[in-house]
Structures are given as structure tokens and as C-alpha cells.
Computed example of a mutant assay.
Amino acid sequence: MSREYPIIAVTGSSGAGTTTVEAAFERMFTRQGIQAAFVHGDSFHKYTRDQLAQILAENPQQSDSLSHFAVEANLLDKLELLFHEYAAKGTGTYRHYIHAEDKDMLEAGYQVGTFTPWQPLPENTDLLLYEGLHGGLVTQEYNIAHYVDLLVGVAPSVNLEWIQKIDRDTKMRGYSQEAVIDTILGRMTDYVRYILPQFSRTHINFQRVPTVDTSNPFEQHEVPSDAESFVVIRFRESQRIDFPYLLAMIQDSFMSRPHTLVIPGAKMSLAMEMILGPLVQDLLDNRRFR
């Protein structure tokens, strides 16, 4: 899809590692002088952390049916409108959700689990980068994926995904391990209904697979290192990818299927930039003239 204002979406579950891909894009944008508008999916949650906790406390029966994965807990009409407006005019409205690691926001007086006011996107950007839960969502009411020019999925093996979420939320966000496990279990229906189907719509999936035992992800684990994993990279349109070049440049990589490249985990950042850089440039080269 060729647009004057391209949209790239990085989609994946909580704890999957989507921020790693976002960081790779940021490095590319800086190196190539690309001005990007950055939007995070949690900014479109419907409730603050306290509001959601109160709703669940007053309605315990909703604990298994209302999560941040669910359509009902997000302002997906606003997200779809943002994508529509940006694709058409390079404009739109967004806000920030405050996490415990957002030190600048906390110093400015915001509370964890709340939002900044809605504000216009920066002007004169070359593209929009979305990172979050719903970049490839399609339901009867919403078609977020329709507006996305490059959809990237981050889907580690599910045990690794849970280990990473437990590690992040206990160390960086102050939750107990039991609370994180309860959240994972409470979101399972929405995970299957809304998150997993998106990975069949992505242009590229990055799936990190550990080479160490993660049989019980709910035990206390250290997150397997990059050196203790492989990354399986699946391409929907493999004819656009120069596989011989990637195999030559990424040591110890191999093809497991005609559309699937496997690389050592430590080479993930290199592979992302080698793969995604040309695709981003194609989006920019194929834009309509402003």
C-alpha cells in the first residue's frame, strides 16, 4: 500500500518484546534522518489503572472478561480514527500512558497508571510508528490493520513471553509474581481472541525461541539471554527479501522453510535493521509527492 503518510505497526502481547523492535526502528530513523510520530497502544486504554481496579473490585465476575487485551477496555475508535487521519493527512490526536519507568513524566507530577491530556501529533513527520497490542486488530467493529503499511509481529514462544512479562512487571513495575500470574490467566480468553489472530496478518513475525529449559514459566526464572535463544523470522511476502544476502551477512543463520529465516538470538538487532531498513525506505520512496 503506497501512501503519502505511511504507518508502521509493531504488535505483540504484553511482555513480548515489542519495545526492542521499536528501539531498532528508532536507531534506523535517527541514522536515516526520518522524522517519525511515535504512538503507544497503552495510550488508548479506556481506564486508568485505579479505575480498572475499581471496576474489577465492584464486579468480580468481570475479572476474566475485562483486560487491556479486550476491545471493551480500549478506545479503539480513537485509535482507528488516528490511523485514518494520519494516513490521509499526516495528522491525528494521541496521549501518553504513564508507567513506573517513565521518570520524566513522574517528575512532572503524573501518577503511574494515568494519562497525559490528548494532544496533536507532531507536525511534518515522514511516518507514524505504533507499538502496542492492537496494531493488526480486525473485528466486526474495527479494522485497524487496514491502515497499516508495514505490520511487524513480535511473538516469542509463549513460555518465554510469560517469563519476560513476570520479570519486567516484578522488577520494573512493582507487582508481585502472584499478581502478574493472575493477570496472565485473567487475560487468556482475550489473548486467544484478539492478540493471536493478528500474527496471521503481519508482514513479518519475529519469534524468539529459548534453547534453555522454560518448561514451567511460573517458577522463578532469569530471562534467557539472547545467546541462549534463536529467532525465527517469518515473511509473508518472501519475494521481497534478499535471503542469500541475509544468509551471507548473518553468521550461523539458516532457512527452515522457503519463507522463514532462523538466526542466533544475539543477531536479532542486526537482522532487524538489515530487514526492516530497506522496507522502510521503500515506503518512503513510494510515497505520493506532497
Rank of each mutant, 00 (worst) to 15 (best):
G15C: 10
S43I: 07
R49V: 02
I8Y: 02
I55L: 14
S13I: 00
Q62G: 00
S63Y: 00
E58L: 13
Q35A: 13
A23S: 13
Q51H: 05
G12I: 02
F38S: 09
D64A: 14
V21Q: 08
G41M: 09
Q54S: 12
T48F: 10
S63Q: 15
A57D: 13
I7T: 01
S43C: 09
E26P: 00
G41Q: 05
G17F: 11
H45I: 04
K46C: 05
Q32L: 15
A16E: 03
F44H: 08
A53Y: 06
A36W: 08
V21F: 11
Q51E: 15
G41T: 07
P60T: 03
A24F: 06
V39S: 10
V39Y: 09
Q35Y: 08
T11Y: 02
E4I: 12
F25N: 04
K46Q: 14
Y47A: 02
A9D: 01
G12W: 06
I8W: 03
T11R: 02
Q54W: 05
E22F: 14
F29S: 08
Q35I: 06
F44N: 06
I55A: 03
A16C: 13
E26A: 14
I8R: 01
G33R: 10
M1N: 06
T18K: 15
Y47K: 07
E4A: 15
Y47M: 04
T19E: 11
P6C: 01
E26V: 10
Q54P: 00
